[in-house]
């Protein structure tokens, strides 16, 4: 919980967490908060400018852009987070097994990871999408297949360092079962490291999904996705450049929010960076800093 305390003191972290919170909530509640049906085609309203009914205007089929952006959160962010969670989970299981039990388990698992990591990621992703056909679920599957090995490696390194601690040795010596040690000692210790790597890779995943959708390899019409909306706007890039604005900004803002959060988590967990940021705060808040630190 010290992580939480640290983050709540960092205003960039608070800001990015609020932005992310709003985005996630909007995505979950899309059917209730979207002002219009995102799939309703109204040729009468093609390229209509913003109005009271359609806040961000209408696209080339007269669909409500704002509603499509809101529905797009589900595909651009929520599903990406689910895929991330799945690959982190697989990576964590393997990383914990390898880092904690060492020896032969470690050697075998890490060789498998090395094999997975030796494929060029983008090429493999395109290959998987090529074999399975375009579609968001195939891209996400490709993500999970390609990313778990990297998570496993990073988590293993972190777990290994904590498995050497004397309190873990003591727990083993007094006959506590491995499962309990992993849950009570290893998980809380490794969780911050997992948070750092997971938050760090969200951004690239969001961008990749949007990128692949932009190339029409991702989600298929009529569903809304930010990358695909950009692609649709591309056709009228010169006559109506403002259509690129909404999906483009949506991507930039959410990636930035996750990026800032990732940085803040890292700062909050690294004692060396923390003192630096504490110093920065001291300057800003002068004598209030004392209360902050005592918190």
């Amino acid at each position: 919980m010290s992580l939480w305390n640290q983050l709540s003191k960092d205003k960039w972290a608070v800001a990015s967490m609020s932005v992310i919170g709003v985005i996630l909530l909007a995505g979950v509640l899309a059917p209730w908060i979207a002002p219009n049906d995102p799939y309703a085609v109204q040729m009468r309203l093609r390229f209509a400018s913003p109005s009271w009914e359609y806040w961000l205007g209408n696209d080339h089929l007269g669909r409500c852009i704002l509603s499509r952006i809101i529905y797009g959160i589900r595909h651009s962010i929520l599903w990406v987070l689910a895929a991330l969670a799945a690959s982190v989970l697989i990576g964590a299981l393997i990383g914990f097994a390898a880092g904690y039990f060492r020896g032969r388990t470690d050697a075998v698992l890490m060789r498998i990871c090395d094999v997975m990591l030796s494929f060029p990621g983008y090429v493999m992703m395109l290959a998987i999408v090529g074999i399975l056909g375009p579609g968001l679920e195939n891209i996400l599957l490709a993500f999970i297949v390609m990313k778990w090995a990297w998570f496993a490696r990073v988590i293993r390194t972190s777990v290994m360092q904590y498995a050497e601690m004397d309190y873990v040795r003591f727990a083993k010596a007094v006959g506590i079962r491995h499962r309990t040690i992993l849950i009570r000692h290893m998980l809380p210790a490794a969780l911050p490291d997992i948070a750092v790597i997971a938050s760090g890779s969200i951004c690239s995943m969001i961008l990749q999904v949007s990128g692949l959708s932009f190339l029409s390899l991702g989600i298929q019409a009529p569903y809304a996705e930010w990358g695909m909306m950009l692609n649709e706007a591309r056709a009228v890039m010169f006559s109506r450049p403002e259509l690129m604005l909404a999906p483009g900004l949506a991507i930039v803002i959410s990636v930035m929010a996750f990026n800032f959060l990732a940085d803040s988590i890292q700062v909050a967990l690294d004692p060396k960076l923390r003192t630096k940021s504490a110093r920065r705060r001291t300057k800003e808040a002068e004598n209030k800093a004392y209360e902050y630190v005592r918190g």
């Binding site: 004397d166 040795r169 003591f170 010596a173 007094v174 006959g175 506590i176 079962r177």
Partner: peptide
């Protein structure tokens, strides 16, 4: 493990 539980203990450096 069951031999050690409660019967063996340690203090480290």
């Amino acid at each position: 493990r069951r031999t050690r539980a409660g019967a063996l203990s340690a203090v480290f450096q």
